[in-house]
């Protein structure tokens, strides 16, 4: 499981380097992200631009993270590849998640 974590003053930027978010990596990613929240990080910006595929286990990670954070505004995502974007929309996750065009927009959205 390869993720990069960058702590800014009030927002944590997480870059996911996994090409596939599926059942093979979901549990570990979920634990890593939950730990981040457990350590007191309350606003997460997620860069998913390197993720080429997400299945329902991967979606579950996002959902679990959202619920752990408590409010939808505490998580912003950017950079979904077409396949990931399609899956997010199919699952109507685009209505729950804050999807933004880029990193700056993510920081902006989270600081509102």
């Amino acid at each position: 499981m390869h993720i990069d974590i960058e702590d800014l003053e009030d927002v944590t930027v997480v870059t996911v380097h996994e090409p596939r978010l599926d059942a093979l990596v979901a549990a570990e990613l979920r634990n890593r992200l939950m730990d981040l929240v457990g350590q007191g990080r309350t606003r997460l910006a997620l860069d998913v631009s390197r993720v080429g595929f997400i299945d329902s286990s991967g979606l579950g990670v996002l959902v679990a993270l959202l619920r752990r954070l408590g409010k939808p505004q505490a998580l912003a995502l950017w950079g979904p590849t077409p396949a990931v974007d399609r899956t997010l929309r199919l699952a109507r996750m685009d209505r729950i998640l804050t999807l933004v065009p880029d990193r700056d927009a993510a920081l902006c959205a989270l600081r509102e």
Binding site: L59, G60, V63, R67, A91, R92, M93, R95, I96
Partner: peptide, 12 residues
């Protein structure tokens, strides 16, 4: 027609 994942407890 439909909604999102089962498990979100009425979010949508």
């Amino acid at each position: 027609a439909g909604g999102t994942i089962i498990g979100l407890d009425g979010l949508l």
